[in-house]
Design a protein around this nucleic acid. Structure first.
Length: 657
RNA sequence: GCCGCCUUAGCUCAGUCGGCCAGAGCGACGCACUCGUAAUGCGUAGGUCGUCGGUUCGAUUCCGACAGGCGGCUCCA
């Protein structure tokens, strides 16, 4: 019989009895390298956290989502320590883990240079190599204030304790709701204090078990995320459980860079942003134009089949319209300033909905017409701040595939359900297949207008429609537009990035503001519900997403040039022209490369322009009434009879492959 | 809008510690070559070094403003 007091705990699901004073690490027999922390009763804890009677303990592996966050958080501490060693005057902001990495904010007189980053990274490596221990220590608020007297931002966080979640994204990793703690970095042999930071933790046992990290960039960021606050210098870094994991992340970034639509757009001669037009305004070149036209044509056809009616509206209108719609009071910052003309203020169109409301209101409407679905490729202009304009995904002029559906309240659930299915099916036809949905609801802010009961009802209907799709549903409280809740469809692309695509919004406001009415079967006048919905979001943005998704190698039906004829020698050009004529007669976009490059060079050019089909012909093919295929992936299929070759291409295009 | 960085030929980039005619590769154009699955050779043209202003005997180079771009912050389709 031992006199040592004992504890009963649950270890990774099984009951155990351990000596009092046992740490989570000891109970888990953690090596501190692959298992780097513990979940105690669901809360992340350091390995040297002492267990209490009845605790449930689970290991946290460094290569788990939780584990990486802890690793990155610890690496952020190493970053801050390195910065303060090199720049003793630097004051600390916050330093949380983020997706794929971490950052730390500093108040310094001069922004960091790329050279500074190199020095900081080197210093971090020294700290990692030393293997300093992360040691947790509870402190009272008063003691923390005294210790951190030189860290004004930390003091501010202490003052905000409890409300830290609202203080700033990431601030909650510094101060939790309860007892304040400070982490000391201790020298492994001497135990000497090397550095300390106010932090909730948990952390790795030592800096030595940071396997791989890299500083990425520095940039300015507002303290606590507000434009009104001072700007701090933020350093971004990434950290991984192994060198290989870091390497594959860096490879992913390279891949993303290769797919950048701005780069591909120039390389493939699809579009450009002439400086003469001003920032955020694109022109589409013929090759981009044809892709866009095919995208639009297919969308038009599907909308027509789904009972939409097409309308057209101007690009400019008197300000009164946007006062009626409520945009001017809520949205004026995003609109171009007005043009004074004939005694009225004219605004560039920033939204299509007010104009569609005028179409609805142009005459009396009957319940028999509902749901009335108005559709337009409507070009809008929005004033985007100069720093946010970004290629085709964030432009100042863009075209929405916008539609507004007017229906009765009773029709709303069925309409939303059908709409969401329609939207997802159509997106799938363009080649996106991996989706999740986001439901954005009303928040506390006073930007939201309208009756809470209406909001609740609409939110509930949207939720039900979303749940029927059997897709992951993410809640986004407070993310709604000012006039109503919305569902947005998020799509993951070929390399796993997510893009916001379609949005579906319910709006009770505009029908009221415009006095929209229909006559019901009982002769009474009723107010319709309005559903806003853009499927591509904007054609330009959707174009960019597809361009990046396919890395420029569009499926045949969208490819600007679907086939290129490549003669082995000049004398084979007329033969290929005849083949090309056959294809053109079937509506295929085909070119014959009759230039005086060598055949190999023509193949290279066609390959670089990502043409799906290369059709080669030499004496052998001519003698057999055939062509030889070279596909984009480099594979070939030689001596294919012309009829068969034409059929192969036509079928692929018809089936949108 | 804020912070930092960037802007040299159609594209990608050298270069000038302030000094006579600013370079390369690719692309374009011309000539020769007529070739079986990712670059044939030779030649030619092309730049008031983003714009405007300042400093200087002299500015593409230094300084400032503006425009455009890139990375973030804030915001968003």
């Amino acid at each position: 019989m031992s006199a040592v007091p004992e504890l009963r705990i649950t270890l990774a699901g099984t009951e155990r009895v351990v000596a009092a004073g046992t740490t989570a690490g000891a109970a888990l027999e953690a090596d501190g390298r692959t298992v780097i922390a513990a979940l105690v009763n669901g809360e992340p804890r350091d390995l040297d956290h002492e267990l209490a009677e009845g605790d449930a303990v689970e290991p946290v592996a460094v290569d788990s989502e939780h584990g990486r966050a802890i690793l990155r958080h610890s690496t952020a501490h190493v970053l801050a320590q390195a910065v303060q060693e090199l720049f003793p005057e630097a004051r600390l902001g916050i330093g949380p883990p983020i997706e794929n990495g971490f950052y730390y904010d500093f108040d310094v007189a001069e922004p960091f240079t790329p050279d500074d980053l190199k020095r900081i990274e080197k210093k971090m490596q020294e700290i990692v190599k030393q293997g300093q221990r992360f040691s947790r220590r509870a402190v009272s608020d008063a003691a923390a204030r005294e210790e951190l007297a030189d860290e004004p931002y930390k003091l501010e966080l202490i003052g905000l304790k409890g409300g830290a979640g609202d203080a700033a994204e990431g601030a909650s990793v510094e101060v939790g709701a309860g007892q304040l703690t400070i982490y000391d970095n201790l020298h492994p042999r001497t135990g000497e204090l090397c550095w300390k930071d106010l932090c909730r933790g948990p952390h790795l046992p030592t800096t030595r078990v940071i396997p791989a990290f890299k500083l990425m960039r520095s940039a300015a960021a507002y303290w606590r995320g507000s434009e009104r606050n001072p700007q701090l210098q933020r350093i971004y870094g990434t950290a991984w459980e192994s060198r290989d994991a870091l390497k594959s992340y860096l490879t992913f970034l390279e891949e993303a860079e290769k797919r950048d639509h701005r780069k591909l757009g120039a390389e493939l001669d699809l579009f450009s942003f002439p400086e003469e037009l001003g920032s955020g305004m694109a022109v589409f070149h013929p090759r981009g134009g044809v892709i866009r036209r095919v995208m639009e044509d297919y969308s038009r056809r599907r909308h027509e089949e789904a009972g939409y009616e097409f309308v057209n509206t101007p690009h400019i209108s008197k300000g009164k319209l946007y006062e009626t719609s409520g945009h001017l009071p809520h949205y004026a910052d995003s609109m171009f300033p007005p043009m004074e003309f004939e005694g009225a203020d004219y605004y560039l169109k920033a939204m299509n909905c007010p104009m569609h409301n005028l179409v609805f209101r142009a005459r009396g409407r009957s319940y028999r017409e509902l749901p009335l679905r108005l559709f337009e490729f409507g070009t809008v202009y929005r004033y985007e701040k100069s720093g946010v304009v970004h290629g085709l995904t964030r432009a100042r002029g863009f075209t929405q595939d916008d539609s507004h559906i007017y229906c009765t309240k009773e029709q709303m659930p069925g309409e939303l359900d059908a709409l969401l299915t329609f939207v997802l099916d159509l997106l799938r036809d363009y080649g996106l297949s991996d989706f999740y949905l986001e439901l954005s609801t009303r928040g506390d802010s006073d930007k939201f207008i309208g009756e809470p009961a209406e909001w609740e009802e609409a939110t509930e209907v949207l939720r039900q429609a979303a749940e029927k799709q059997n897709l992951e549903l993410v809640l986004d409280p407070g993310g709604a537009a000012y006039y109503g809740p919305k569902i947005s469809v998020q799509a993951r692309d070929a390399i796993g990035r997510t893009w916001q695509m379609s949005t579906i919004q319910v709006d009770f406001q505009q029908p009221k503001r415009f006095g929209l009415e229909y006559q019901a079967s009982d002769g009474s006048r009723q107010r319709p519900v309005m559903i806003h919905r853009a499927l591509f979001g904007s054609i330009e943005r959707f174009f960019a997403v597809l361009l990046e998704h396919y890395a420029g190698a569009f499926p045949a039906w969208l490819a600007p040039v679907q086939a290129v004829g490549i003669p082995i020698a000049d004398e084979h050009v007329p033969y290929l022209e005849r083949v090309a004529d056959r294809l053109r007669a079937e509506g295929i976009r085909v070119e014959v490369d009759a230039g005086d490059d060598r055949m190999q060079k023509k193949i290279r050019n066609a390959q670089k322009s990502k043409v799906p089909y290369m059709l080669l012909a030499g004496d052998e093919d001519v003698s057999k009434d055939a062509v030889s295929f070279r596909y984009r992936d480099g594979s070939q299929n030689n001596g294919v009879p012309i009829d068969q070759a034409v059929a192969e291409i036509v079928t692929a295009v018809r089936e949108r492959r």
